[in-house]
Amino acid sequence: MKQFNTFPKFWGLIQELALKTVKLRYKNSMLGFLWSMMNPLIYLVIFTFVFSYAFPGIDRYPLYALTGLMFWTFFSSSSIQVIESVINNSGVLKSINVPTIAFPLAAQVASLISLFLSLIPFSILMLIFGLEIGWETLLFLPILFLFACFTFGVSLILCSLNVYFRDIQLAWTSFMPAIFYSSPIAYTTSVIPEKFLWLMKLNPLYHFITILREILYYNRIPSLMQFLAIFALAVIPLVLGLYIFKRLERGFVSQY
């Protein structure tokens, strides 16, 4: 009965679905890929104008903002796609026996592919704005992987709830700017009063962005504590997300 019971077969399905998504994203517009870069770039320009005057203390400000914006773009776009993935494929899910998890997972993989594509222009920009490459730069990959796990876990929880309550995806979209401005993407935490710093640390994005900055902006090797923190922040939502998804999956088909 299980048609995707072997790993190669399941992975083949994920690949096919993810490639389809990436292909569709860039197929119908000539400048498709460039458009996807526009959003972070516009932010970058605005931030550079506004914030480098507001916080003149930040050295190489565009690089500082870019390191945060890169993660943010990935987080915002992939969470939305993962959340909508099950609903958008309800037609397939109610007529073909495909593992439901394939769709959110493929959406996440597609976002990762897009991110890697955007890394090319991003890194050129970062080099222009004074990025220094060292051995510690390689730590980017494991950090990115953990961040993707975190994103997937959180989105999976919202995705499963969204099948039952479509409000979730609307609420999430309007909730986004709040997360954006409460994360140290455009500003440094030094502008936050000491007594409120704990509040900021409740935001998981804070930890991911800080550790990324350690390697790309300060060229430092992050401390073990920082690694353990993001490791926990990646694993806990992922396990929770998979658990909630599994629990709620049974009822999905009634909601399509």
């Binding site: 048609q3 995707f4 190669p8 077969k9 083949g12 399905l13 096919e16 679905l17 389809k20 292909k23 569709l24 197929k27 119908n28 037609g91 397939v92 007529s95 073909i96 026996n97 495909v98």
Partner: peptide
Amino acid sequence: VGLEPELTGMENIKLVGTLIGFEK
């Protein structure tokens, strides 16, 4: 079901084929 209007017939054979459980 599963046909993607933006893709070509050929691409759709691969997509839908994969969905219904064909191996490569």
